[in-house]
Design a protein around this nucleic acid. Structure first.
Lengths: 124, 124
DNA sequence: GGGGTCGATCTACCGCAGTAGACGAAAGTA
DNA sequence: TACTTTCGTCTACTGCGGTAGATCGACCCC
């Protein structure tokens, strides 16, 4: 099992791929440029680096590379979340949730859904 | 207010400082070496880098540097947690907590305490 | 006083993310 | 056919975290 360390932009690229299932470098550049401009060659470089570490693969469709994610979203979410949980909160889920409730504004509706979630979890 | 990005070892150094209030480089080296060996000069280099970005300061006590943290623990916790929340969970506290409950094993006792916490939060 | 110890500094290197220009090939277009 | 666009590759550089050896100065002990 890989413990994939992804940079900030690399993660954004993966997110575009997860969302679309597969995309050309051009599509990714366009998507990322919506929020902040980035050179096409930068995206291509990062895609090659991602491929080098096994995060993505590509196939050629009409002379153009179509990239597909190899890392699963759940896998990456897992890794980075557990990493934070361990390093910052000493592994305490309670500590982490407590911090979230204290420092982030959570709507009453979200709180309700959280309570439901926890109840369901307790019944398992 | 700084939103400082700290590396892995840099964070460990800060944690030693938060725990002790203030410490010499030697003390930090010893503490960190308990888990994995690290050269004293590495710690010193990182301390200088941390000082350069305003994360720590030092005073001289009997010809030895005693370092003190300038970044507050809460501040760093805040920054990195919100960073993850935003980048991975699109800002959804619910999404993040749901992931934690699903992928981390949470004891019944912890679940109870979490429910209590949420109830308290709902009453505010 | 001379050698060992300890602290701080200097310097240098590696790895990786991010950045992007330059270049060449191919394909469409006027 | 010649121009333009698009794509992928090559190359290179910056910044930063992490790594640590080499060195210098001060202090302590015999």
């Amino acid at each position: 099992m890989a413990a994939p360390r992804l940079g900030k932009v690399q993660l954004q690229i993966m997110q575009v791929l997860w969302q679309s299932g597969g995309a050309t470098a051009r599509h990714i550049t366009d998507e990322l440029s919506k929020t902040s401009p980035i050179a096409h060659s930068t995206v291509q470089t990062l895609l090659r680096k991602l491929e080098a570490k096994g995060a993505v693969t590509h196939e050629i469709v009409e002379r153009t590379f179509v990239f597909r994610p190899l890392y699963q979203e759940s896998e990456v979410t897992e890794t980075v979340t557990r990493d934070l949980l361990t390093r910052i909160f000493g592994g305490s889920v309670y500590g982490m949730v407590a911090h979230l409730l204290k420092s982030e504004s959570v709507s009453p509706d979200e709180l309700r859904r959280l309570r439901t979630l926890i109840d369901k979890e307790g019944k398992k």
